[in-house]
Design a binder for these strands. Structure first.
Lengths: 247, 247
DNA sequence: CTTGATCCTTACGCGGCGTGAAGGTCGTAC
DNA sequence: GTACGACCTTCACGCCGCGTAAGGATCAAG
């Protein structure tokens, strides 16, 4: 006869969409202790408890940790604004990290979509290279590259990939026929390659420099990823060397 | 004399920037077991182990769970593309949830920045109301409101808040002087209020309807949040009723 | 042989519960 | 009174990726 409207765990759980286990947990950590119990120890939740539980659920829906909720509800002089702002900053930070992750994952996925053979080794190679990139580029340069990707558009990027493939295919033919890398036809390829690189770097010489550094540190690695044989990579290198020597 | 270049945990940890505990853990779960041990049981990591650890670290940097990494590295026929895509989808989903959270938190923060008294009770009231809003509006309507907020701009929203405050202040004066809600001056306020609401809804009648529903379900709640007394809320209601009855 | 640095295993802690296991209690029907 | 099914209780391990001791053994150099 204490309170005929008192609820038992199961009922309260059903009404709030939580589970009895959750209510047990809240009880255990002192976040929500039922204001009464039967003689045998069964929890009886009164109207006061229900209100508090709804408050808890509201704050939980904002992603607040249970101890922060307890602090808010049990210390009436606490500043909810500060709590919200802190939590907001926290979530924003978490989002930024994950967005960075998404960018890396997207780069990987995009790269491998154009690739034929995709073994786990290839994946690891690609990761290694992108890590190299991030090591050689400053944050500002990386941001600039992101902007540039947006401006040129995803379609054009796809197109450029294929142009590189075509370029290497043609270089392969020249190599097989024994054409001098300094001959006019390979040199035309060099000009095309430079144009593609220029489009990628947006004409930024510091980015161009970092790109060269990344290549230098990882001899042949890039080419292996593009499906280019070491011989062709070497031949390509001589084409470019002749091109730059001549300028 | 097994391998003079073999590394001990501490050394390997330093080189990779991990901790010895992490390596212990990887050993315990079978992700990276050192290929040798001393007679007394000290772990000796060989070059092979170092390579594998770098691979593990690369994949961890993508946020992959340890069991997925183990599956990738130990099953050479696994499809890395699928793994990446799945993980990408997972991270994207997580970001979306958090962005939703951020929106709610921002709405709360923005609301409370304009408020004077910010008790925890006020916060809970606001949460309750925004929850109500989300219940009454369809996802499309909510998206529409988000777009609208962007188009009108944050500054204008601030301005509108103040206009509402001014509007209620003037209504208060009329109420205190006993002016008839249907008199020309209060009715001018009604027109102004309708204009503000129209700006908020962007002229969408379904949004207008949902707004009314939310108000109806939560009698007085909104006004309490705006710092409006129940009497003034009632007076305001009669102004608007007269305004709509006349049209 | 001693010493200091490094290593070993074992085990609890974190956050927010899920998922049992083993057994008591509630309310209603007979 | 008692039988029954639905409900309740506490206890305790599991998850994920380690951090952080505790208590003792071993390594490499002098």
């Amino acid at each position: 006869m204490t309170d005929s409207t008192a609820l038992r765990v199961g009922e309260l759980a059903r009404r709030t969409g939580l589970t009895a286990r959750t209510l047990h947990h809240y009880d255990a950590i002192g976040l929500l202790r039922p204001s009464a119990r039967t003689a045998a120890g069964h929890r009886r939740y009164t109207a006061v408890d229900v209100v508090r539980l709804q408050q808890i659920a509201s704050l939980r829906a904002l992603g607040l940790p249970l101890d922060a909720i307890a602090a808010l509800l049990d210390a009436p002089d606490a500043d909810p604004r500060a709590v919200i702002e802190r939590h907001l900053a926290h979530v924003r930070g978490s989002i930024k990290q994950q967005q960075h992750l998404v960018e890396r994952l997207e780069a990987l996925a995009a790269f491998h979509r154009d690739h034929v053979a995709v073994s786990t080794d290839d994946l690891l190679q690609t990761i290694h290279l992108t890590t190299m990139f991030e090591k050689h580029y400053t944050p500002e340069q990386l941001e600039q590259l992101r902007q540039r990707r947006k401006t040129v558009g995803e379609d054009r990027i796809q197109q450029v990939q294929q142009e590189w493939q075509a370029l290497f295919a043609e270089a392969q033919r020249h190599m097989e026929t024994g054409t001098d890398p300094a001959a006019p036809e390979p040199q035309a390829l060099a000009a095309k390659a430079e144009a593609l690189i220029g489009e990628f770097t947006g004409g930024d010489t510091s980015i161009r420099q970092s790109l060269n550094d990344a290549y230098a540190e990882n001899p042949g690695g890039m080419h292996r990823l593009w499906g280019v044989s070491p011989e062709l990579a070497d031949y390509y290198g001589r084409i470019m060397a002749a091109y730059h020597a001549r300028r």
